[in-house]
Each structure stands twice: as structure tokens, then as C-alpha cells.
Amino acid sequence: MRGRSITFWLMFGGVLFAALAINSFFGLLLTDRDPFLAIIIGINSAIYFFGIAEKKSNVRKRYSHLLVGSFFSYVLSIYQVLVVFSVWLEGLLISSCLLTIEVLNLPLIVSGFAISFLFDFAKKQIETNSF
């Protein structure tokens, strides 16, 4: 991946997760209002943006931001799945469905899993030193 592409993906990840953070902060689209989760998603967004701030010539450092940022996004989606699972299980135990479309926070789950492909790519590039 060339320097310009990596900048694109860092920008993409940063903007996407900044949007998800705003979405969670205000509870706008398919999500409950959760300011604390929004802050955590915002930190994920910062990891990508700090990558753009690295010197263009230092592709390795930019890759490391993409690697950690995409992994963090993946972890956040797994976290959300676990939360959804425990809410479902709790509902099952009290014979009541506690799940709503907002509890699912689908934008976060889908984005996190989608961006995990970037993690695999960045990992491979680093392990093979293909910069």
C-alpha cells in the first residue's frame, strides 16, 4: 500500500469512528445515548487521526496507527456484541425481551467488523516488511 492509500484509510477510519462517537453521544441513529461509550469510540478515532499527523515519509509509523486503530475498532465491536448478548440473556432469565434496535448499536458492530479486514492487511504488511 502506498503512502496516499494509507492516508486514505487512516482518514476513513478517523472520520467513520468520529461519526460513530457523535452518534453514540447524542443517540442519533440506531443507538442509545451513551456519552461514555462515545468517548471511548472517540479515542479510537484519535488513534487514526494521530496516524495522519505522522510524517508522510514514515510509512511504518502510519501503518502502526492503522494496525492499532483497526484492532481497537474490532475490539469495540466485540465489546458491543458481548453487551448485547448479556442484555438478551438477562431478558431470557426474567422472561422478558430487553433487546431493542438501539441496544444493538448496529453502526458500531458493523463498522468494527468491517474494519477488522484492515487490521489483517496492516498486520500482514508489517510482518512481511512490505512497505
Binding site: R60, K61, Y63, L67, V68, I126, N129
Partner: peptide, 14 residues
Amino acid sequence: GWNFSEAIDHVMTH
């Protein structure tokens, strides 16, 4: 070369 741990640490120890 630059190994996996070093790549992660660049961000984790930022």
C-alpha cells in the same frame, strides 16, 4: 526489521 510488537508499541506507548 520492524517487528509486530514495535509497531503496536509506537501507538500503545504514545
